[in-house]
Simulated scan of single mutants.
Amino acid sequence: MLCFSESRLQSFPKDLQDAIVKAGLEAGRWHRKAEVAMGQEIIDKLVANHGLKTIDFTAAQKAEMAQRAMPEVEKYARQVGAEDIFKTIREM
């Protein structure tokens, strides 16, 4: 993770700003794919070696679980002071 303030980013030349943003987006996509792949590898090993049973959920079931979890997600956002970010994400 690379973090710095918006004012610091704006202090860089435009081409460098664009390169930083582009690299960040690409790195984020790569990391997410790698994280999912690693998680799936762990699950596959648990299934094969330890008898883990998995359940595939339908889209409707996933939506219902997300809806039921939302009060706790909102509570956590309030606890960590992320209400504005959470609201922005929900509106996307």
Rank of each mutant, 00 (worst) to 15 (best):
L2R: 12
C3F: 09
C3I: 08
S5C: 12
E6Y: 03
E6S: 11
E6Q: 12
S7D: 15
L9N: 03
L9P: 02
Q10F: 02
F12E: 14
F12D: 15
F12T: 07
D15C: 04
L16A: 09
Q17H: 07
D18R: 02
A19Y: 08
A19L: 14
I20M: 05
V21N: 02
A23Y: 03
A23R: 13
G24S: 13
E26G: 02
G28L: 07
R29W: 09
W30D: 15
W30K: 11
H31Y: 01
R32N: 13
K33G: 04
K33C: 03
E35P: 01
E35F: 03
E35N: 08
A37Q: 14
A37W: 11
I42P: 03
A48D: 04
A48V: 09
N49W: 11
N49Y: 10
G51E: 07
G51I: 00
L52C: 03
L52M: 03
K53T: 15
F57M: 12
F57L: 14
F57A: 04
T58C: 04
A59H: 09
A59C: 00
K62Q: 06
M65F: 08
A66S: 13
Q67K: 10
A69H: 06
A69Y: 04
A69D: 07
A69R: 12
M70T: 11
M70R: 14
M70K: 13
P71S: 06
E72Y: 01
V73H: 08
V73K: 08
E74I: 10
A77Y: 06
V80N: 09
V80M: 10
G81T: 02
A82K: 12
D84S: 02
D84M: 04
D84F: 00
I85S: 06
K87H: 15
K87S: 15
T88Y: 00
T88P: 01
E91K: 11
E91L: 10
M92G: 13
